[in-house]
């Protein structure tokens, strides 16, 4: 079943300007892969070279950070809302 994936403004230029897209997948990892398949320009923003989630991106499943759930293996149920948000941080270190 498709789930709705909310894209942050910085990713929309790579997804035809859409703020929300529909993606298929039983887990967060599959949903993210489907977004990348549909919009290849998002690949460098979403995935690290080793296939993990890019460390400067946070993914939320119904407002829960998936890193504190099951990461990319987190199961996604029908009607769930997945949100992708850039990690915003910095400072003088």
């Amino acid at each position: 079943m498709p789930v709705s994936v909310r894209l942050p403004t910085v990713l929309r230029t790579h997804a035809g300007g859409l703020s929300e897209v529909s993606a298929e997948g039983a887990t967060i990892g599959e949903v993210v892969d489907d977004v990348v398949r549909q919009f290849p320009g998002t690949a460098n923003h979403l995935k690290a070279p080793d296939g993990a989630l890019h460390r400067f991106v946070n993914v939320y499943l119904d407002d829960e950070d998936v890193r504190y759930l099951g990461g990319l293996d987190t199961p996604v149920s029908d009607g769930a809302e997945v949100s992708i948000v850039p990690a915003v941080a910095g400072g003088t270190g």
Partner: peptide
């Protein structure tokens, strides 16, 4: 981070702001 040397913004706070902006439909964005 509650730090004098670094900062971080909770992604849910960013999400809330972006949702509000999308709902307002006035073309504003972060």
């Amino acid at each position: 981070d509650r730090s004098a040397r670094t900062y971080a913004i909770d992604g849910r706070e960013i999400l809330r702001v972006e949702r509000d902006l999308d709902a307002s439909g006035n073309g504003l964005e972060v």
